[in-house]
């Protein structure tokens, strides 16, 4: 990757959010995206911890990039990433125990996450601290919104409700929003209405949701490209018509 030039800071932040979204465009980090998106809160929590690890490791790798000899770059990057993953793991176990138990082994697996390692190798190892920080923030936010959206879709379709405050339990009882499934029970103990589809809570449902999201993203990108192409074509035709009109005018004048 080329070094970032002056005036390109904004791009290094924005690229990761949409244009080069790690999950929906580069299709990286699929394993946690499929495994921890059963609910919005778990997915969002994973996104936050992932962003912290990515930003911290990017900054440290960028700071040390000129001091680390070429032949031991990868081991050093892994040590740096592993340090931040351990810190994040301890923090979650101490202060967010629900999130820690929901994420399970996938929190530890951030050490070998291809996005974190990839950004360290491809970006932070070659660019300044500020740009690496922005790149980490952009990619982290991009990954967080993508898996959070997956979490919302899977939770609503699979469970029929959207729960807020169960994992991040700071304000007492969690808030359960009945969207496809009623929280009120009838005399037989069944919900008044239930349109949830349980497959969306299973791994197969995760693949279906991811596939739909990727297809939507591809459709939006294709539509944008088609609009740009049409604009270019129209501009070319307009230029041609202008030239022809000028030539006709010149011919008339002669």
């Amino acid at each position: 990757m080329d070094k970032i030039k002056r005036g390109q800071h904004k791009e290094s932040f924005l690229n990761g959010i949409l244009k080069e979204n790690p999950l929906l465009v580069q299709i990286l980090g699929l394993c946690p995206a499929l495994a921890v998106t059963k609910s919005l809160e778990t997915a969002f929590g994973m996104g936050l911890l992932f962003t912290f690890v990515l930003v911290s490791s990017n900054v440290i790798v960028s700071l040390l990039r000129k001091l680390i000899p070429e032949e031991i770059k990868t081991p050093c990057y892994i040590v740096v990433i592993a340090t931040f993953v351990t810190i994040v793991k301890m923090f979650a176990e101490a202060f967010l125990p629900e999130l820690y138990s929901s994420l399970g082994v996938f929190l530890s697996l951030l050490v070998v996450n291809c996005i974190v390692l990839g950004r360290s190798e491809a970006f932070a190892g070659q660019n300044g601290v500020f740009d690496s920080f922005l790149d980490g923030c952009g990619n982290g936010i991009g990954y967080t919104w993508a898996i959070s959206l997956m979490g919302i879709i899977r939770e609503v379709l699979g469970l029929g409700t959207l729960t807020i405050g169960k994992v991040f339990n700071f304000f007492g009882d969690p808030l359960v929003l009945p969207i496809l499934k009623s929280t009120t029970l009838d005399s037989n103990g069944n919900p008044l209405y239930d349109f949830s589809i349980s497959i969306f809570q299973n791994p197969a449902g995760a693949f279906i949701v991811l596939g739909l999201m990727l297809a939507t993203m591809a459709a939006i990108t294709n539509h944008k490209k088609a609009v740009e192409k049409a604009k270019e074509k129209a501009a070319k035709e307009a230029a041609k018509a202008e030239l022809a009109a000028k030539a006709a005018l010149a011919g008339g004048a002669k």
Binding site: V80, I87, M90
Partner: peptide, 17 residues
């Protein structure tokens, strides 16, 4: 380099612990 990075990591993890 390896020793320095490992020591820094150990220190951070120790403090967090």
């Amino acid at each position: 380099t390896l020793a320095t990075i490992a020591s820094g990591s150990a220190l951070l993890i120790g403090l967090m612990n």
